[in-house]
Design a protein around this nucleic acid. Sequence first.
DNA 1: GATGAATGAGGATTCATTCAT
DNA 2: AATGAATGAATCCTCATTCAT
Lengths: 214, 214, 214, 214
Amino acid sequence: MATIDLQRRAEIGRQKRERTRSALIEAALKVVARRGFEAPTIDDFIAAAEVARGTFYNYFETKEALFVAMAAYVADAVDTEILPLVAGEDDPAVRIAIAIRHFIRICKRDHDWGWVLVRTLPDTTGGWSEEMRKGVLDDIRRGKRSGRFKVASVPAAVALGIGTLGAAIRMVLVDRTSGDFPEQIAAITLQGLGMEQEEAARVAAMPLPPIQTR
Amino acid sequence: MATIDLQRRAEIGRQKRERTRSALIEAALKVVARRGFEAPTIDDFIAAAEVARGTFYNYFETKEALFVAMAAYVADAVDTEILPLVAGEDDPAVRIAIAIRHFIRICKRDHDWGWVLVRTLPDTTGGWSEEMRKGVLDDIRRGKRSGRFKVASVPAAVALGIGTLGAAIRMVLVDRTSGDFPEQIAAITLQGLGMEQEEAARVAAMPLPPIQTR
Amino acid sequence: MATIDLQRRAEIGRQKRERTRSALIEAALKVVARRGFEAPTIDDFIAAAEVARGTFYNYFETKEALFVAMAAYVADAVDTEILPLVAGEDDPAVRIAIAIRHFIRICKRDHDWGWVLVRTLPDTTGGWSEEMRKGVLDDIRRGKRSGRFKVASVPAAVALGIGTLGAAIRMVLVDRTSGDFPEQIAAITLQGLGMEQEEAARVAAMPLPPIQTR
Amino acid sequence: MATIDLQRRAEIGRQKRERTRSALIEAALKVVARRGFEAPTIDDFIAAAEVARGTFYNYFETKEALFVAMAAYVADAVDTEILPLVAGEDDPAVRIAIAIRHFIRICKRDHDWGWVLVRTLPDTTGGWSEEMRKGVLDDIRRGKRSGRFKVASVPAAVALGIGTLGAAIRMVLVDRTSGDFPEQIAAITLQGLGMEQEEAARVAAMPLPPIQTR
DNA sequence: GATGAATGAGGATTCATTCAT
DNA sequence: AATGAATGAATCCTCATTCAT
């Protein structure tokens, strides 16, 4: 009896802890989306999460620790949404097109995530999971070897891939873009990797499962 | 006599003012290159410029005001270097290739400018002069109309152009890149705009006057 | 249990907050008395209150805000001392005489309060509580109607009442004044309001409870 | 010839010097009227006087020196306007009434002077010339001796006289006061000094030369 | 005599972090 | 766990004063 009670208590404590932690991270997401990484103070984060000052330090030693947790959280969430879609797919062109389109669609759906991604993309630490990063490089190399892509310089191809995606996300957040903008970006990226315009457009237009609301 | 004297005085004053202002901006350039926009304090800027604390405020109301002046300064300087090179050129592909290659070469030569450009490129306000911005859009449209480029979506082409260049500059500043990296970026960008690989490579390899040391 | 605990916590916090706030205000009182409103720096106030620099800003946004709180504090304290003394009294002359005498006695006893009163009296915001202000005006009007006072112009009578009191307080703080100075001021004020010299002197000499030490 | 030239030059220099100095003092008058003694910076004074920063220090060593000059300037100007009016007059009541009425009329005409007077009256240094101060005290004593005034305490009478005048000036600047307010104040002051209401009113209503526009 | 750029000490303000309850 | 008052180092900003032209 006593044992069960202790277990239950521990379990409740764990859940509560987890909830507060998530509240802090998700609040931070909103705040960073709006104001970037440098401007906000800890006050902004605790106000958004509606917890007391001291509570913050029960979960994170510093602001940076919160940012690290947040980057992991976002990278994880993006992984969870994107990796399954490309899991069974072998063609690098298809894999890249799907990833690009889904990335942009996510950011369109959820501007907070979009802004956090835009703000972390330049840094090598955040937003992209290690898995994702390797995957892209791998796809480019495989496509090059197989002749699917015509690429003289892999670094240049990486610059084109990442740079175009980053700029596209920013446009989606700031400007009003057409409904097929994700496909246009996928197509032009594939074209940049050396595919013919028609083939690039075809691959970029392949059916994709509808995006979930978060 | 008194009038002449007054005029001379005013002129000398103006020059001195201009010199101090430039000193502050060029010092800020170095500081920002090294430490970004957020980390440095006003103390860092005045130390680098070797002026007194109060002097800073005689010229700029806030750090932001200094940054704005700095971005304008760089944009202007880059303009001055690049516009003449493309002035006589009519082919949009050639113009874009020259601009890209020279942009990257400048950033390679002068990391300070590079960092400022990287950090201001995403903002619509900084780094690109209005002239440059219009020029790019115009070249893309002209190339599309003439059939030189095969581009389904102009916004997507802009994202590709700007995004790739930004990512390339960042790579040049952070990684060690090959000597022909500027040409590789120019080539892959043209390919993204719909040119054949060989033709893109040919245009990207056209002779360019050697870059001046600043 | 948890609820009771939370309530107790909140109550303790509230008390602590109140104590620190009072400490700041009372320290400010002393500092202002000695050095006026303009000379002291925030450093002076926190040194006097023995709190840290940041603590000041937890309670007051600016020095002005502290001054406002301080004026309210003094006005309130003076009210508390004077209003009971005149509460049962109906004759306007007696009421005014009591208030004047007690006002001056308070300032004699407590130079800190005196200086704050002198410095805030001219402003319509400070030193006088709303209640006090209305009371004075009301007494003058009633005295005029009843024939107790001979006053051609109420505004002039207000100027005489407030002006004389202010100047008297200043004298008490700066010069050495005779022991019956409060009575002399009360008498001359009543005379100014149109009472005969003897009657004014008689009313001004009526017994008053001894002043409490603060 | 050369001598004449030198003399003329010196004379011109002296005049110019005097003009700049006056410009600074009169500008300071306006600034102090509006913002008091503590708030304005030297920048405010030179801006109002339309001279350069360095010029200020050619005339005054510090801000305080400017204030001293300004106080002397005002006291002198007030003297010049008021003393002649009471010069031939022997009756203390008449002298005091004239001075009070004229003081208030001046402040009504020229709010800048009014504010400066209000702001310096409390200090023993400014606004009142030594002559004026002695005159008031002397008039009160003479009036008391001659039985014109019924005053038990001379200090109390001084407090009444100065305090009432100060409060009246403030009212004139802040509130809308009736046209005969100067006379009302003179009358109630005389009443405070122990004169019968009718006699006080009569003395306060005696003809006065019309006020000059400055 | 007038000018205004430069100075730097003094004072104001913010904010990450600690800690007792 | 949660709370929020207190802290003080770091930073920002103002402004009286100097001085070369």
